[in-house]
Write a protein that binds this DNA or RNA. Structure first.
Length: 517
RNA sequence: GGCAGGGUAGCUCAGCUGGUUAGAGCACGGCACUCAUAAUGCCGGGGUCGCGGGUUCGAGUCCCGCCCCUGCUACCA
């Protein structure tokens, strides 16, 4: 079981490039594992509680539930358009989630009763935001969002979780599980944090209305609302059906794909919660970077900055967008989005290099072999490609980190090899000489074998276009049903009937006027 | 402020434990070819390797100082 998750998105706006990057990256990993033969369960979803949602709903004059229903529908529509292959979509407002959260908290109360205790939480409270503010949110002693209001020093009686107790456990876990968190830079940051020591965190809030009731009243009889850590993070667990015993069939998760800004929550608070409850920890957390703009403005989950995601997706289609995001934004760091770059990548990589290689190869099989793929034995081209695919594999399976951009780079090395091979062999010349018939067939068979592998290895990133190429190659079944390794290596296209179709990545269409640099 | 990581061709970056004329892709220029989405292949122009010292026969690659950028430095999801 390969259980992979993305962070759940906060329901206070429309999906943007940052949301999309994370889903696309995780989707590629999930699809890759399916094609390895793993039993994959891919979870994404929404975080729908909290003050900001409640306020946004109030501002619109709708109920919070109505608001999040609408937002969730928009997100789901976008993920569908992008070909995200999630098996499940969890929403924290779902009744089953509340049941799971309550069960998790109760389990901690039972196993480690000392881990929950009551204490006063104190901080600067902004009446306008109806929320506590951190130092970074306070500008000149005022709330950045409500500069005219005065911040009040407010204290409230809350449930706390004894996170501090888990420092040594976490340090040991990081030491004994070197691949628990990647990339390396994020791991080092968390190790530094653990060296500093940990403070306990709030588990409930009294002034928060929109959320899951904390299962136990405080000593003065106050039934509070579960604070974010114990509401949002457990979604990965509650999605398995927890506390139904069947949850153990899926838990623990193999991989949490999250943004670098929430690494700490996933690598410190979440593991501590699980350990306190006596539940196994996820195998790994991968913290990806952000999509930036030329000006350096960044997209994070709730930064509120928007590029027209829909426009970017429709410019060259969902698959091209998926490719651009994963190729241009290194999955272990930040990368910039620009229309110019997008255009260059589309033309150079997708249309000219890959699309055209497919086009010219299929056209020659049709022209010189009546559309039937001739026989041919694997040769030095296959061997060279195999070395590139070995690197592809390492990038996709996380062996040295989920460097998806390197996986794509590797595939494109095989594409370049194919184009070079065609020019060197010049099949159009061989075709003019009947005595060169065997050589011609060998060349064309080699090209088709290359395309088979390219289609398969690109299927996780270009699910729809790879399938279309598969169809044009006259290959049986679906490209997504292929299995990496021996089965793919043994696949012989001899006798397939190619079906020349439209260009995989057409260039003629005139781009819409860009709205961004 | 502290800790960490960076500043290499127009752009994005590779350059391992110091060693012949500093590399790749894209972009740009020329040539070749015609199967192909005027695509592809080949060749080429282009870099004070952030700045200043130092060690060394020799430094992008080590040491010191400085400048600049980014991340982290916990209760916003």
């Amino acid at each position: 079981m390969f259980y992979i998750t993305t962070a759940i998105d906060y329901a206070n706006g429309d999906p943007h490039l940052g949301h999309a990057l994370e889903k696309i990256g995780a989707d590629a990993i999930a699809r890759y594992h399916r094609m390895r033969g793993d039993h994959v369960h891919f979870l994404i979803g929404m975080d729908e509680h909290g003050q900001k949602v409640a306020q946004a709903a109030a501002a619109e004059g709708v109920t919070p539930q109505a608001l999040v229903d609408r937002v969730a529908a928009r997100f789901q529509a976008m993920w569908e358009r992008l070909g995200i292959s999630n098996d499940q979509f969890i929403r924290t407002t779902a009744p089953e989630h509340a049941i799971g959260v309550k069960a998790l908290i109760e389990r901690i109360f039972e196993r480690n009763p000392d881990d929950f205790y009551e204490k006063t939480y104190a901080g600067w409270y902004c009446v306008g935001c109806e929320a506590f503010k951190t130092d970074s949110e306070i500008v000149n002693g005022q709330c950045g969002l409500h500069p005219t209001r005065t911040l009040e020093w407010v204290e409230e009686w809350n449930w706390f979780f004894r996170l501090s107790r888990y420092r040594d456990f976490l340090r040991t876990h990081f030491a004994t599980h070197p691949t628990f968190l990647g990339p390396e830079s994020r791991r080092n940051e968390i190790l530094a944090l653990l060296d500093q020591g940990l403070e306990d965190v709030s588990a409930s809030r009294s002034r928060l209305g929109w959320g899951i009731p904390f299962p136990r009243a405080t000593r003065d009889g106050d039934l509070q609302t579960t604070y974010v850590w114990f509401d949002a993070l457990p979604n990965y667990l509650t999605a398995t059906g927890y506390p139904d015993p069947s949850y153990s069939a899926r838990w623990p998760a193999q991989l949490h794909v999250v943004g670098k800004d929430i690494t700490r929550f996933h690598c410190v608070i979440w593991p501590a919660m699980l350990h306190s409850a006596g539940l196994p920890l996820p195998a790994a957390v991968w913290a990806h970077g952000f999509v930036t703009l030329a000006g350096g403005e960044r997209f994070s989950k709730s930064a509120g900055v928007h590029v027209e995601l829909a426009e970017a997706v429709e410019r060259y289609g969902p698959d091209a967008f998926r490719y651009f995001m994963l190729r241009e934004v290194p999955f272990d760091g930040d990368g910039a989005f620009s229309w110019e770059r997008f255009g260059e990548r589309y033309t150079a990589d997708l249309a000219n290099a890959f699309g055209n290689l497919a086009s010219r190869s299929i056209a020659m099989v049709e022209r010189y072999c009546a559309g039937v793929v001739p026989a041919g034995e694997p040769n030095e081209i296959d061997a060279a490609d195999a070395a590139d695919y070995a690197r592809y594999r390492e990038a996709m399976d996380g062996t040295r980190g989920y460097l998806l951009q390197d996986a794509l780079r590797s595939v494109w090395l095989t594409v370049a090899r194919g184009n070079e091979y065609v020019d060197r062999q010049a099949p159009w010349k061989l075709a003019k000489d009947p005595t060169q018939r065997t050589a011609l067939e060998r060349v064309l068979a080699t090209l088709i074998r290359q395309l088979i592998r390219q289609a398969a290895h690109l299927a996780p990133v270009l699910p729809e276009r790879a399938e279309e190429l598969w169809r044009q190659l006259g290959a049986p079944g679906s490209v997504h049903a292929q299995r990496f390794g021996a089965p793919l290596a043994a696949l012989d296209p001899t006798g397939w009937r190619v079906i020349r179709g439209d260009s995989l990545f057409p260039k003629e269409r005139e781009p819409v006027a860009p709205s961004l640099p």
